[in-house]
Amino acid sequence: MNRRELLKLIAATTGTAMIGGSGLLTGCATSSTQTALTFSPDDIVLLDEIAETILPRTQTPGAKDAKVGQFMTVYVNDCYTREEQATFHKGLLLLEERCHKTYGHGFMALQPAEREEFVSHLDKHAKAEIAAGKMHYFTMIKQLTLFGFFTSEVGGTQVLRHVAIPGRFDGELPYKPGDRAWATR
Protein backbone atom coordinates (compact mmCIF):
# COMPACT_ATOMS: atom_id res chain seq x y z
CA MET A 1 0.00 0.00 0.00
CA ASN A 2 1.47 3.33 -0.95
CA ARG A 3 1.13 6.59 0.89
CA ARG A 4 -1.60 7.95 -1.32
CA GLU A 5 -3.83 4.93 -0.90
CA LEU A 6 -3.21 4.88 2.80
CA LEU A 7 -4.03 8.55 3.27
CA LYS A 8 -7.09 8.16 1.14
CA LEU A 9 -8.50 5.25 3.05
CA ILE A 10 -7.71 6.86 6.37
CA ALA A 11 -9.32 10.09 5.31
CA ALA A 12 -12.31 8.49 3.69
CA THR A 13 -13.20 6.77 6.89
CA THR A 14 -12.45 9.42 9.48
CA GLY A 15 -14.84 12.06 8.26
CA THR A 16 -12.10 14.16 6.73
CA ALA A 17 -12.35 13.70 3.02
CA MET A 18 -8.92 13.64 1.45
CA ILE A 19 -9.61 15.70 -1.60
CA GLY A 20 -6.59 16.83 -3.53
CA GLY A 21 -3.01 16.59 -2.44
CA SER A 22 -2.38 13.27 -4.14
CA GLY A 23 0.78 14.70 -5.62
CA LEU A 24 0.14 12.55 -8.66
CA LEU A 25 -2.99 13.95 -10.16
CA THR A 26 -1.71 17.45 -9.61
CA GLY A 27 1.68 18.76 -8.73
CA CYS A 28 2.40 20.31 -5.38
CA ALA A 29 4.10 23.47 -6.55
CA THR A 30 2.14 26.49 -7.69
CA SER A 31 3.37 28.91 -10.30
CA SER A 32 2.84 32.62 -9.99
CA THR A 33 2.18 33.40 -13.63
CA GLN A 34 -0.32 31.30 -15.43
CA THR A 35 -0.93 31.80 -19.12
CA ALA A 36 -2.84 28.73 -20.12
CA LEU A 37 -1.64 26.81 -23.12
CA THR A 38 -4.85 26.40 -25.04
CA PHE A 39 -6.75 23.41 -26.36
CA SER A 40 -8.42 23.33 -29.77
CA PRO A 41 -11.71 21.58 -30.52
CA ASP A 42 -9.60 18.93 -32.31
CA ASP A 43 -7.66 18.33 -29.12
CA ILE A 44 -10.90 17.59 -27.27
CA VAL A 45 -11.92 15.10 -29.95
CA LEU A 46 -8.49 13.44 -29.77
CA LEU A 47 -8.59 13.25 -25.96
CA ASP A 48 -12.09 11.80 -26.14
CA GLU A 49 -10.91 9.04 -28.48
CA ILE A 50 -7.84 8.19 -26.37
CA ALA A 51 -10.05 8.12 -23.28
CA GLU A 52 -12.59 5.91 -25.06
CA THR A 53 -9.79 3.47 -25.86
CA ILE A 54 -8.89 3.34 -22.17
CA LEU A 55 -12.52 3.09 -20.99
CA PRO A 56 -14.65 1.96 -23.96
CA ARG A 57 -18.38 1.78 -24.16
CA THR A 58 -19.55 -1.78 -23.47
CA GLN A 59 -22.97 -2.70 -22.09
CA THR A 60 -22.33 0.41 -20.03
CA PRO A 61 -21.32 3.89 -21.17
CA GLY A 62 -17.72 4.77 -21.98
CA ALA A 63 -15.44 7.78 -21.68
CA LYS A 64 -16.95 9.67 -24.61
CA ASP A 65 -20.42 9.34 -23.10
CA ALA A 66 -19.05 11.07 -20.02
CA LYS A 67 -17.41 13.87 -22.07
CA VAL A 68 -14.05 13.03 -20.55
CA GLY A 69 -12.08 14.94 -23.23
CA GLN A 70 -13.80 18.18 -22.34
CA PHE A 71 -13.25 17.52 -18.64
CA MET A 72 -9.54 16.91 -19.16
CA THR A 73 -9.08 20.29 -20.83
CA VAL A 74 -10.88 22.10 -18.00
CA TYR A 75 -8.83 20.27 -15.40
CA VAL A 76 -5.51 20.86 -17.14
CA ASN A 77 -6.32 24.53 -17.66
CA ASP A 78 -7.42 25.23 -14.11
CA CYS A 79 -5.76 22.71 -11.81
CA TYR A 80 -2.40 21.87 -13.37
CA THR A 81 0.71 23.91 -12.73
CA ARG A 82 2.24 25.62 -15.71
CA GLU A 83 4.94 22.95 -15.83
CA GLU A 84 2.36 20.17 -15.81
CA GLN A 85 0.39 21.94 -18.52
CA ALA A 86 3.50 22.12 -20.68
CA THR A 87 4.15 18.39 -20.13
CA PHE A 88 0.56 17.56 -21.03
CA HIS A 89 0.45 19.70 -24.21
CA LYS A 90 3.84 18.49 -25.37
CA GLY A 91 2.63 14.98 -24.63
CA LEU A 92 -0.22 15.28 -27.12
CA LEU A 93 2.31 16.23 -29.79
CA LEU A 94 4.60 13.36 -28.82
CA LEU A 95 1.67 10.96 -28.93
CA GLU A 96 0.77 11.96 -32.46
CA GLU A 97 4.41 11.84 -33.53
CA ARG A 98 4.80 8.34 -32.12
CA CYS A 99 1.60 7.29 -33.82
CA HIS A 100 2.82 8.59 -37.18
CA LYS A 101 6.11 6.74 -36.78
CA THR A 102 4.36 3.47 -35.96
CA TYR A 103 1.36 3.54 -38.27
CA GLY A 104 2.10 6.24 -40.84
CA HIS A 105 -0.79 8.42 -39.73
CA GLY A 106 -2.34 10.12 -36.71
CA PHE A 107 -4.39 8.56 -33.91
CA MET A 108 -7.75 9.64 -35.31
CA ALA A 109 -7.11 7.62 -38.49
CA LEU A 110 -6.29 4.38 -36.63
CA GLN A 111 -8.59 1.37 -36.70
CA PRO A 112 -10.08 0.30 -33.35
CA ALA A 113 -7.64 -2.62 -32.99
CA GLU A 114 -4.69 -0.35 -33.80
CA ARG A 115 -5.85 2.19 -31.23
CA GLU A 116 -6.02 -0.47 -28.58
CA GLU A 117 -2.60 -1.82 -29.50
CA PHE A 118 -1.06 1.66 -29.58
CA VAL A 119 -2.56 2.85 -26.27
CA SER A 120 -1.69 -0.44 -24.63
CA HIS A 121 1.96 -0.03 -25.66
CA LEU A 122 1.93 3.55 -24.47
CA ASP A 123 0.47 2.41 -21.16
CA LYS A 124 3.26 -0.14 -20.61
CA HIS A 125 5.90 2.38 -21.61
CA ALA A 126 4.48 5.00 -19.25
CA LYS A 127 4.40 2.50 -16.38
CA ALA A 128 8.08 1.77 -16.89
CA GLU A 129 8.87 5.48 -16.88
CA ILE A 130 6.85 6.04 -13.69
CA ALA A 131 8.59 3.08 -12.08
CA ALA A 132 11.87 4.81 -12.90
CA GLY A 133 10.60 7.92 -11.14
CA LYS A 134 9.85 9.94 -14.27
CA MET A 135 6.51 11.58 -15.06
CA HIS A 136 5.00 10.51 -18.37
CA TYR A 137 2.30 12.38 -20.23
CA PHE A 138 0.28 9.23 -20.79
CA THR A 139 0.01 8.69 -17.06
CA MET A 140 -1.53 12.16 -16.84
CA ILE A 141 -4.02 11.33 -19.58
CA LYS A 142 -4.90 7.99 -18.02
CA GLN A 143 -5.36 9.40 -14.55
CA LEU A 144 -7.54 12.21 -15.80
CA THR A 145 -9.54 9.72 -17.86
CA LEU A 146 -10.25 7.53 -14.83
CA PHE A 147 -10.88 10.47 -12.54
CA GLY A 148 -13.03 12.30 -15.08
CA PHE A 149 -15.02 9.20 -15.93
CA PHE A 150 -15.75 7.72 -12.53
CA THR A 151 -16.59 11.12 -11.01
CA SER A 152 -18.94 11.99 -13.88
CA GLU A 153 -22.68 11.51 -13.62
CA VAL A 154 -22.59 8.87 -16.35
CA GLY A 155 -19.74 6.98 -14.70
CA GLY A 156 -21.01 7.47 -11.16
CA THR A 157 -24.59 6.38 -11.76
CA GLN A 158 -24.53 4.06 -14.81
CA VAL A 159 -21.20 2.30 -14.36
CA LEU A 160 -20.85 2.65 -10.59
CA ARG A 161 -23.76 2.92 -8.15
CA HIS A 162 -24.92 6.05 -6.38
CA VAL A 163 -27.64 6.74 -3.84
CA ALA A 164 -27.85 10.44 -3.03
CA ILE A 165 -29.53 9.97 0.35
CA PRO A 166 -28.89 6.45 1.72
CA GLY A 167 -30.90 7.16 4.87
CA ARG A 168 -29.36 4.28 6.82
CA PHE A 169 -26.14 2.33 7.23
CA ASP A 170 -25.67 -1.40 6.74
CA GLY A 171 -22.15 -2.56 7.52
CA GLU A 172 -22.62 -6.08 6.21
CA LEU A 173 -24.35 -5.88 2.85
CA PRO A 174 -24.15 -9.17 0.90
CA TYR A 175 -21.91 -8.86 -2.15
CA LYS A 176 -21.46 -11.06 -5.19
CA PRO A 177 -19.02 -10.62 -8.08
CA GLY A 178 -20.44 -8.29 -10.69
CA ASP A 179 -22.17 -6.06 -8.14
CA ARG A 180 -21.01 -2.54 -8.83
CA ALA A 181 -18.98 -0.34 -6.49
CA TRP A 182 -20.38 2.77 -4.88
CA ALA A 183 -19.47 6.01 -6.62
CA THR A 184 -18.52 7.73 -3.37
CA ARG A 185 -17.69 6.64 0.13
Partner: peptide, 8 residues
Protein backbone atom coordinates in the same frame (compact mmCIF):
# COMPACT_ATOMS: atom_id res chain seq x y z
CA UNK B 1 -18.75 -11.47 -0.08
CA UNK B 2 -19.51 -8.41 2.05
CA UNK B 3 -19.97 -4.74 1.27
CA UNK B 4 -21.82 -1.86 2.91
CA UNK B 5 -24.70 0.46 2.26
CA UNK B 6 -24.61 4.13 3.22
CA UNK B 7 -21.75 6.54 3.81
CA UNK B 8 -20.84 6.94 7.45
Amino acid sequence: DKYYYGRR
